[in-house]
Design a protein around this nucleic acid. Structure first.
Lengths: 236, 236
DNA sequence: CGTTAAGTTGACACGACTCAAAGGCGGTGG
DNA sequence: CCACCGCCTTTGAGTCGTGTCAACTTAACG
């Protein structure tokens, strides 16, 4: 399986062979994590940088009323705690959704990358800024669209992001989320997620059997959702 | 007037006298911008890094249905386009709200800071990560709270952020936003913003005359809003 | 003062939430 | 291998928060 981090970074950044080799060498030893398990909790102090190699994970916060709010998905190639040593403690938690394969990267390795591999440094900056841009887009999505378009927009984003790292085809992508998790992500109730999904299926915008979503007409779904992929800052 | 960037950075980072001196020297020539004017539009390519020294500005996006969504406020001490030269084009726009004083900083200056002032580099990283954390908190706020608490939470954040840079007192802060802008920020209609503000006033949680909000009991408002300032990562 | 933008109010409609209960599907153990 | 059990999904009915439309009042500004 090709390295998802390299796939992702190269969709918008130029890397030299030695950069790729260095990134490959990072993922020497991997660790498997069970599904629905916390990687780190709010208030904890992370000690290493972690990278998701395979599986779905999410960032979340819990409100005082007990409601959970998912504020980001970590797909293969995404970093968990890039803040290490700059922000003292986590202001949110990270949990797996599916079984995940992750790599732990030491501070020393990160420092080496920053000092000796300027193209990688730049690419990691790019990744951080794209994360930020994605948060802004989520804000727009959740604040400004009706529920059906929220779901459609999220699907468009997941489809594209998974495609970038070779985990989705032209017309389908895996979706291991429960309807409750979709609701916690989009700020709508589980029941309403269910009804909206049915509507999208009836309208032929998606098919949704098992844990896979099929999108018969990607352009149509994007049009419906008002999805503009510019915020992911991929090369054309 | 003390330099708001230094005030902000020093609330969580250690700077040496030479760092402060270097940061002071940056703001040699300032520029004034009229209120309600675009600083940069979506799709444009920024050429310099800009810093807000005084005034209110905001980041925003416009949906396909014409609705505007405000995805962040720029207060004194905040950077506009730190992405310069990493992300090719803007995925959102930036506009002033009040008259603003800004500084334009050349790439050369940024490079100099990064190479010769490691404490400043680290502090600027901190600022970027706090921006990201703030976006996550906004997502929680807009996705998971009823309208009255959304407004209260935003007020708590603005109050604290303005205090940090010396623009707010113990119990009040300036709020130059129209109710329409508040609605565009929180994803609720102008009419509903109006009713919610009245309710908050009736409940004695805020007073709101002119362009100043007074908070008689900060702890009570925070309690009501479920506001936890940890995401701003300030030193205690 | 005239003119315009911002704030306020009321009536009504509708999207989304809650509660509650029934069906389906997958996983585990006997 | 089948049966059970729990989680997820699906449905229905009723409620409530929030949106829309439209008019009116107040404040801002030249």
């Amino acid at each position: 399986m090709p390295n998802p981090l390299i796939l992702k970074l190269e969709r918008a950044n130029v890397l030299a062979p030695e950069d790729r080799a260095r990134l490959e060498s990072i993922i020497a030893q991997t660790r498997k994590i069970a599904p629905r398990e916390d990687l780190i909790r709010e208030g904890e102090v992370p000690d290493t940088v972690r990278l998701v190699l395979d599986g779905f994970a999410c960032r979340y916060k819990v409100l005082s009323n007990g409601k959970r709010s998912i504020v980001g998905f970590l797909l293969p190639g995404d970093f968990c705690d890039f803040h290490v040593a700059i922000l003292s403690q986590m202001d949110h938690a990270i949990a797996t959704i599916t079984p995940c394969t992750i790599v732990e990267i030491s501070r020393a390795t990160i420092d080496d990358l920053n000092e000796n591999f300027p193209r990688i440094t730049r690419a990691l900056w790019w990744a951080t800024l794209v994360d930020e841009a994605t948060l802004r887009e989520w804000l727009v999505n959740i604040g400004g669209r009706p529920a059906d378009k929220k779901v459609a927009h999220l699907f468009c984003e997941l489809h594209l992001r998974l495609q970038v790292v070779g985990h989705a085809g032209e017309n389908s992508f895996p979706l291991p989320l429960t309807q409750e998790e979709l609701g916690d992500t989009l700020g709508i109730s589980t029941v309403h997620v269910n009804r909206v999904l049915q509507q999208l299926r009836e309208d032929g915008l998606i098919q949704h059997q098992g844990r896979v979503v099929t999108v018969p007409d990607v352009a149509r779904l994007r049009e419906f959702a008002g999805f503009n992929p510019n915020y992911l800052h991929l090369k054309p």
